[in-house]
Amino acid sequence: MSALDVLDAEQWTVVALSLRVAATAVAFSLPLALLVAWFLARSRSRWRMVVDALVHLPLVLPPVVTGYLLLVVLGRRGLIGGWLDTHLGIVFAFHWTGAALAGAIMGFPLMVRPIRLSLEAIDRRVESAASTLGASSVMVWLSVTVPLALPGVLAGLVLAFARALGEFGATITFASNIPGETRTLPLAIYSYIQIPGGEGQAARLIVISVVVSLGALMVSELVARRIKRLQA
């Protein structure tokens, strides 16, 4: 019995899909999260509070509500979704990209917060030193601000990844529970539990969930330590 036989083909599909959905979610939300965190950490605009509230909304809203709102806005007949479908051929609803989007939105506040905190901890005077050395504000951002905020970026990535991997409510509402398309780990576990005698199948996926989550935490901790050692 090889290691692959621990899970059947269907279950491997679930694991692969979940990783793809979560990875896509964090990859696309990272640039936006950096910008938003930077805005929240540095701007004195009065829009700051509004943006702050919007970013945190998915954290306090019932996930089903978030999923429903996504469906209204980005569904095939939604306000934006219809336009995206006819003009760009991009579909979110009932599609794996929809699961990724739901994961990204639910993970977004968790990604923004640590990045924002680490940006706020940066010594601004080092940045002004960089500008006297000839770096434009974009170059200061890329060469000083972002590298110094790296531990926070990493923490945000891991939290958002874990959140996207575990996302249930918004996903099932917006993207549904389609095997091979939107059935991620939590949805699959839920489905197994619904059928009599499915607990054994569910248990294997539960173990996978625990292993993947723990693994992500440990990797991020190791990388964070290494960064701190380099910078301390």
Partner: peptide, 20 residues
């Protein structure tokens, strides 16, 4: 003229080196 275009070397009270 923005700071980065003035070509002025500034040595501050604290060194303000790049820690990374």
């Amino acid at each position: 003229v923005p700071a980065h275009k003035r070509r002025i070397g500034f040595v501050f009270q604290q060194a303000r080196l790049f820690p990374h």
